[in-house]
Amino acid sequence: MQINTDNNFIDEILICLKKNKSAVMATVVNTRGSTPRKAGAKMLIRPDGSFTGTIGGGCGEAEVWQKAMEVFKSNQLSYVSVDLTEPVDGEDKVCGGVMDVMIEKLVP
């Protein structure tokens, strides 16, 4: 259920912060049209590029992942708009909406 907070996810954040001294959090802040996840969905990216949680899978996540790796270096909170409105015959982006994702670096 969406309103339940996944306690395991909070545990993961803490483990990552203690072990790696940093983590990047991607949070869906806004959606338009039909999207796999709604505002509040989260994904945690570790410095080695591994991640946990999902903001919807597929190409959207790849874009977010790439930005996350930049944020590790820049330390700057930034945004990425994941456009899932591209033609159906292209990639897997058939949902038809746009997700705005906030990407921020967390340090202990």
């Binding site: 907070t5 954040i13 803490l14 670096k105 967390l106 340090v107 202990p108």
Partner: peptide, 17 residues
């Protein structure tokens, strides 16, 4: 964001309670 551990620990603790 700094002090993340403190904040997430507090989230964890509150939800557990």
């Amino acid at each position: 964001m700094k002090n993340s551990i403190l904040i997430y620990q507090k989230i964890q603790e509150s939800l557990k309670n």
